[in-house]
Nucleic acid binder design. Structure first.
Lengths: 217, 217
DNA sequence: TAGATTGTTAATCGATTAACAATC
DNA sequence: TAGATTGTTAATCGATTAACAATC
């Protein structure tokens, strides 16, 4: 995946966190926040927070701090959350269901337009008013409905095929839950969520902790 | 979360990837692999791969490379995959179902012993031979069955409560899918999977790409 | 004006890459 | 032995932290 700016991914991955913390502040009717206060909440250093934000512009005011509402809105814009993204889900299993039912994505502008599977038993059914179609129809559906993001929730074996169809249909981004490194052209954005890798980190840390405890004895 | 060794998290998060790539090599009957070949497959530099592996010991042989099977096994041990982990899932919604049904975790030594919810409609039912119980019983169940990992698949609002019960019951690690920073004692390991943060990265990158394209015109 | 806090430059720290001697 | 490739040290690069002048 090619990158198009010199903002580091480390910064990019902190942006959704800032966004979430600011939302929380707004929910608690807090209007104003300094980098120092944000530091306490987020665990990042105040210095880092100011550096991060200044990658995108000077959103604060000396002597005052940041206006929580304004900063929240600005970060939303930076994250591209001021737009609508049409998505399709491939794989109508439990994970596909979970994603389709997660209403927070809708709220943030991600709209599921279709769900695809190869299992004849589920095809023709509906999931939250969204039709489940055969994977044969994926490419045309993506084309006809200007889908921008494909969400791959298939088993490993179908994931590359799904990606190929999505790309032929013209999606710009893929959110991939299959434990596979998809082969995609340079201009297509892929974000992987690899649950095994995440779980294995837990077992690693448990083992590390245990070993360290043993040494102390 | 306290750390117990000086291995950096950057290294730790690459280990599951090495493990997965080696598995693939083994499936293709490849017995031997050099850091250079691994570099081609993984996208990491050969130098980085050798550095990473040497954090844990010298698994290779000069002039030969690494024995794929042995290295796979060793990394498995490092990740703590040579053990059995008893887990519980809290939240029997779609995501809980997806996790419970994901057979790969079983294969890696993670065994779901119980599922918990507050919805009377699902309590008493079974999911893949695993009983769905009321969250009231969570703490005792964790204690009585020596559960080591709790998997939180509840809505945001229940996640801290679930974490508290798990910790009172004595779990050592929490795999958290709720978009919340759980408050836990220092010795408890928490691994967050925040789907919104992941999805927002996609929209960020789409927007970044578009802006860069606009500039070129 | 005085106090507070940003925006930004400089210093530090840590992670990645390069290089090469050791050795199979 | 000659060739290949590791293990490991040194050099580089990038990200984080510290410091402080600018300014509200």
């Amino acid at each position: 995946m090619e990158r198009f700016s010199n903002i580091s991914m480390a910064v990019v991955r902190r942006l959704p966190k800032y966004y979430r913390y600011l939302e929380e502040l707004l929910n608690n009717d807090i209007k104003r926040v300094s980098s120092q206060e944000l530091s306490k909440i987020t665990g990042f250093t105040a210095s880092q927070i100011r550096q991060d934000l200044n990658c995108f512009g000077g959103f604060g005011q000396q002597g005052y701090g940041y206006n929580a509402e304004e900063l929240h809105k600005e970060i939303g814009k930076i994250l591209g959350l001021d737009r609508l993204y049409k998505t399709v889900i491939i794989g109508a299993g439990n994970l596909g269901h979970a994603i389709a039912n997660y209403s927070n994505f809708d709220k943030s502008g991600f709209k599921t337009m279709g769900i695809f599977d190869v299992n004849e038993k589920v095809i023709g059914g509906k999931l939250k008013d969204i039709e489940i179609m055969h994977m044969d129809k994926l490419e045309d559906f993506v084309k006809d409905n200007s889908i921008t993001i494909g969400i791959i929730c298939t088993p490993k074996a179908y994931s590359q095929e799904a990606a190929d169809l999505l790309i032929k249909g013209g999606v710009e981004g893929i959110w991939n839950f299959a434990p596979v490194d998809l082969k995609v052209p340079d201009h297509v954005i892929v974000e992987n969520v690899n649950l095994s890798e995440s779980l294995f980190t837990v077992s690693y840390l448990l083992k590390e902790r245990e070993e360290s405890n043993n040494k102390k004895k």
